[in-house]
C-alpha cells in the first residue's frame, strides 16, 4: 500500500480544477468529480456552491452513499430549471465523463457509430451543447485509452471544443472555456498551442510516452512536465472520513490500483 489510491489521487486533481473558480456552482457528474468538488470546498474553495444532487443548494458537501443520520445542510434551491439560468449566466463549472473526447476537446455522450442507426445509443446530448458554450467544463476519464481519446472527431459532437471548422464564421464561441482533463494516467489542460491538449502532470510511475500511446491524437507536453503531487494527509482524511466514508471510490477506477505502482506491478 503506497499510502493512497489512484482514485484518491484523481480526487485531489479534480479538486485542483475548481481552485480558482470563485463563487460558482460546481456541477460534478460521477463519483470522482463529486468528491473533487467536495474536497475543494472543504479545503481551499469554500465559496463554491454545490447541490445535494437533486434540488437543493447545500452549505457543505453531502457525503456519498448511505447517510445514516446525516441531513444535507440546505442553503438554497437549485431546481433543474434554475440550473439553466445559472448556465446561461456562466456561473458554473461542470466536470463530466464523456464517452469520447477528440483532439479539440469535443465530447460525445449521444451515440457511437452512424447517427441514424447507431451501433450504441447512449444518453443523448443532455446539456453538453449549452454547458460548453456558456460555462467552464472539465472532464474525468477513468480509463485513458484510444477508445475514449479518439483519432479524428468524436462520432457526435455533443460538447463543443476548440475546433474552428465548426465555429460559426470561424469565430470561437465567446464563453467556450475547457479547463482540465483528469485521467487515470495524467492531468491535462487546453493550454497547448491553439488550445491543443497538453499534459501538465503525470501520475506516479507513468511516462509521457505511455500517455501518448494511449491517446488517439498527438499531445503536447508541458515544459518541465513532472509528477502529480501526492495527496496530503489532510486531503486523505477529508476524502475518507467526510466525503466518502463507505469507500465508494474503490470502484471508481478498475482494480482500485494504488497511487504509486508497486514494484513489478
Amino acid at each position: 500500500m503506497s499510502g493512497f489510491t489512484l482514485a484518491e489521487l484523481c480526487v485531489c486533481c479534480a479538486a485542483e480544477a475548481f481552485r480558482a473558480d470563485g463563487e460558482v456552482l460546481a456541477t460534478s457528474i460521477g463519483l470522482v468529480p463529486r468528491l473533487g468538488a467536495g474536497l475543494a470546498k472543504l479545503s481551499f474553495a469554500p465559496q463554491l456552491m454545490m447541490t445535494d444532487g437533486e434540488a437543493y443548494l447545500v452549505s457543505e458537501p453531502v457525503p456519498v452513499g448511505p447517510r445514516g443520520d446525516y441531513q444535507p445542510k440546505i442553503e438554497g434551491l437549485m431546481t433543474y430549471e434554475r440550473v439553466f439560468d445559472i448556465i446561461y449566466r456562466g456561473k458554473r463549472h461542470a466536470m463530466v465523463t464523456p464517452v469520447q473526447v477528440d483532439r479539440f476537446g469535443q465530447m460525445n455522450i449521444s451515440v457511437i457509430g452512424d447517427y441514424a442507426k447507431p451501433k450504441t445509443a447512449l444518453l443523448g446530448v443532455r446539456g453538453y451543447p449549452g454547458n460548453t458554450v456558456n460555462n467552464a467544463n472539465s472532464m474525468f476519464i477513468p480509463n485513458h485509452g484510444k477508445r475514449t481519446f479518439v483519432a479524428g472527431e468524436v462520432d457526435m459532437v455533443s460538447g463543443v471544443g476548440y475546433n474552428p471548422a465548426r465555429w460559426p464564421g470561424g469565430v470561437k464561441p465567446r464563453y467556450l472555456d475547457l479547463r482540465r482533463i483528469i485521467t487515470n494516467l495524467a492531468v491535462m489542460d487546453f493550454q497547448g498551442p491553439d488550445n491543443r491538449i497538453r499534459v501538465i502532470s503525470l501520475h506516479p510511475g507513468v511516462s509521457f510516452a505511455q500517455v501518448q500511446d494511449n491517446t488517439g491524437f498527438e499531445l503536447v507536453a508541458m515544459d518541465g512536465l513532472g509528477t502529480t503531487p501526492p495527496p496530503t494527509q489532510a486531503q486523505l482524511s477529508l476524502i475518507r472520513k467526510r466525503l466518502d466514508p463507505h469507500n465508494q471510490r474503490a470502484r471508481a477506477i478498475p482494480g482500485d490500483p494504488p497511487g504509486i505502482p508497486q514494484a513489478g506491478g
Binding site: V125, P129, G130, V133, V157, S158, P168
Partner: peptide, 19 residues
C-alpha cells in the same frame, strides 16, 4: 434566440433549426 447548439452536431443533425 440562444447560443446553445452552435458548433455541436445538434445543428448538423437538425438542419431545420435556423439561425
Amino acid at each position: 434566440p440562444t447560443r446553445v447548439g452552435f458548433a455541436s452536431d445538434v445543428l448538423t443533425t437538425n438542419p431545420d433549426i435556423k439561425t
